[in-house]
Design a protein around this nucleic acid. Structure first.
Lengths: 215, 215
DNA sequence: TAGATTGTTAATCGATTAACAATC
DNA sequence: TAGATTGTTAATCGATTAACAATC
């Protein structure tokens, strides 16, 4: 199955399709054409059909796509029917915010542990999960079938912690530290660099202000 | 100045350059060639030179780029020398995490106010900023020269709140709600869809596991 | 001056869009 | 069957990479 390599450009669009189809499903919409979906999502119908056809033919000529079927298929493609245990490293504000976010469980991501080096935070509680000291991280990862680690620690320690996680069999890192991690092939890293995102916003604000000041 | 339109692909890389150059500067590195930077950042030297040349010639043949100069120039291009007042809508875990994040001030983003509809949160304090009720948002935006609103509220209310912000002169929205906002031309929106990001990670984990199970 | 490295043009690659035959 | 809309091939567009003349 899924022989050819799918470009990350396509993968990056799948969650948005999934979101829109979920909403349509909840509204009771049964079928939708690429044309209708294109108007809703403000992308071309061509792109929608090309994207879906990377994974097989989900539609039917003359009919369009069945919303519920397509929703489920995209969920399956995204791997959301699988369960993945995760831990959070860094029990600061951001770490606790993510730990409290219930929707991840709905997608098969199961919150198993939380770690911090600050003794004052150790033993405190986030949704029933007690914060543990960093020294216990390796053992915990090995013994609890942990696939994903969420890094919400300062960049100074992120690289070293990532190495330790990799050595203990982590499969993926969701990295909120402002640093690029260097991991072996086959370990997935998804970066959320919030300050980069804010700088992009800054660029666009300032560019726009400059442009409207012209002529 | 800056006549031609810069693609968002280029803009999206600027913060990363800025980060690396800042680190080089802090390490006392004085000059760097596109070749050296390319090895460090794992992108092509060609791309680096093309990217910089979108904004003018910052280097010198036979020498390379002056790190401190280039760092400052990119900061200027990103608009980081300008001040922008921001407010946070939604005083939940994520909103408070962002409010507590000091580094934004360093980049010219100034935390001015925080709003929530939950009466229990109103009056509570994040870094000296008191949480105000939603009803005061419009007036506050108008009277305090607020450029940016950070939305950390559920998707059900995000669209309506965004409209109210736009009507009261907001320039940009940093949107953490899992919904696409529809704003007029000239209002900048930068989305941080965390669950989309996690689904991408999910796709890549599962694809990798499938592939290594093959043959 | 000779060597190094940029700035920039040209070539390539990949992603997006358009078009249309296949088919429900 | 006729109409609609997909699946897919071909055309276009834009972004990346390669090459090299300009120049410090």
């Amino acid at each position: 199955m899924e022989a050819k390599e799918i470009s990350q450009a396509v993968v990056g669009r799948l969650p948005r399709y999934f979101r829109y189809l979920g909403e349509l499903k909840d509204e009771g919409v049964e079928r939708i054409s690429s044309q209708e979906l294109s108007e809703l999502m403000k992308v071309t119908a061509s792109q929608i059909r090309q994207d879906f056809n990377n994974f097989g033919g989900f539609g039917q000529q003359g009919y369009g796509y069945n919303v519920e079927f397509l929703y489920k298929e995209i969920g399956r493609i995204l791997g959301l029917e699988n369960k993945h245990n995760f831990i959070i490293i860094g029990a600061g504000n951001l770490g606790r915010a993510l730990g409290n976010y219930m929707n991840f469980e709905r997608r098969g991501f199961i919150f198993k542990g939380m770690f911090d080096k600050n003794p004052e935070l150790i033993g405190s509680d986030v949704r029933g999960i007690k914060v543990m000291p960093m020294e216990e991280m390796e053992r915990f990862v090995r013994e609890n079938d942990i696939d994903i680690a969420i890094l919400t620690i300062p960049k100074t320690s992120a690289v070293e912690v990532a190495d330790r996680l990799v050595q203990n069999g982590i499969r993926a890192i969701w990295n909120f530290a402002h640093v690029d991690l260097n991991v072996p092939d086959g370990i997935q890293v998804e970066n959320v660099h919030l300050s980069d995102s804010l700088m992009k916003l800054s660029y666009n604000i300032n560019r726009y202000m400059k442009e409207s000041n012209k002529d």
